[in-house]
């Protein structure tokens, strides 16, 4: 238990030394949304119709940024090797690491989406459904991206290959996540798509940490 808290603390401390790393994806998110708005006619009402899709894709792309280097520094300084040998199961360590990454990155993006959504003309309970969907969406992305990062650990081309592996699998997440907000906009019940998103999250949270651990061991034989 103490070691788990230690791993979590380590992530937080590492990020505190590199505050810029935490802020960059948020700035990137703002830029993506801004460019979309510039791409349309000024004050085009069509933008509000596309806002959900823009916010979801922007969040996914921003969350993708730090993923290729998720295990890079641990691989380079040998921490990863120590984790593989540690008495604490590797699965648990990886799960804590991914959870810490999501807390500092995915959660911030989900919160950041709310003011951006207001800028794009979304309001009311839809904001809540957007943030809730994005919380689960970024968590699934962290798990899928974590698996890809484990598979690509120590490979120079990781940054260009990782999006290719992760983005196709994100298709259902984006469909149901933005589907929840759109259902609310149309006056339908947003619970069904949110439940579907929840089931995708439950599936990936139960299966993928084991896959990550196995993929990391693969890097060392």
């Amino acid at each position: 238990m103490k070691s788990l808290r230690g791993i979590f603390r380590r992530e937080v401390d590492l990020l505190r030394m590199q505050v810029l790393d935490a802020v960059l994806p948020l700035a990137f998110y703002l830029l993506v949304v801004m460019l979309f708005a510039f791409g349309t006619r000024a004050n085009d009402p069509a933008l509000a119709g596309l806002s959900v899709s823009i916010l979801w894709v922007g969040a996914v792309l921003s969350a993708l940024l730090p993923l290729p280097r998720l295990f890079a520094s641990e691989f380079e300084d040998g921490t990863l090797e120590q984790w593989c040998l540690a008495s604490t199961p590797l699965v648990v360590i990886v799960a804590i690491k991914l959870f810490a990454h999501w807390c500092l990155n995915g959660l911030a993006l989900a919160v950041m989406a709310v003011p951006l959504a207001v800028l794009l003309g979304l309001e009311g309970a839809g904001l809540g459904y957007l943030a809730l969907g994005l919380m689960m969406g970024t968590a699934i992305l962290t798990l899928l991206g974590g698996l890809s990062a484990c598979l690509l650990v120590g490979i120079p081309r990781a940054a260009s290959v990782l999006p290719l592996l992760v983005l196709p699998l994100m298709a259902p997440v984006v469909i149901f996540g933005s589907g929840a907000v759109r259902a609310w906009q149309l006056g339908a019940d947003p619970a069904a798509p949110l439940y579907f998103l929840g089931s995708l999250f439950a599936l990936s949270a139960t299966a993928l940490p084991w896959a990550c651990a196995s993929a990391l061991r693969n890097a060392y034989d």
């Binding site: 899928l144 890809s148 598979l151 490979i155 290719l164 592996l165 196709p168 699998l169």
Partner: peptide, 30 residues
């Protein structure tokens, strides 16, 4: 895109066995 991912990952790593097993994970998840 899943097929493409397996093809790319299957040749991405110098050690062919490690590369193949990494690609196998993507094939299984997909």
């Amino acid at each position: 895109f899943l097929f493409l991912g397996v093809i790319v990952l299957g040749d991405a790593i110098e050690d062919p066995r490690r590369s193949a097993r990494a690609a196998a994970w993507i094939a299984v998840v997909g």
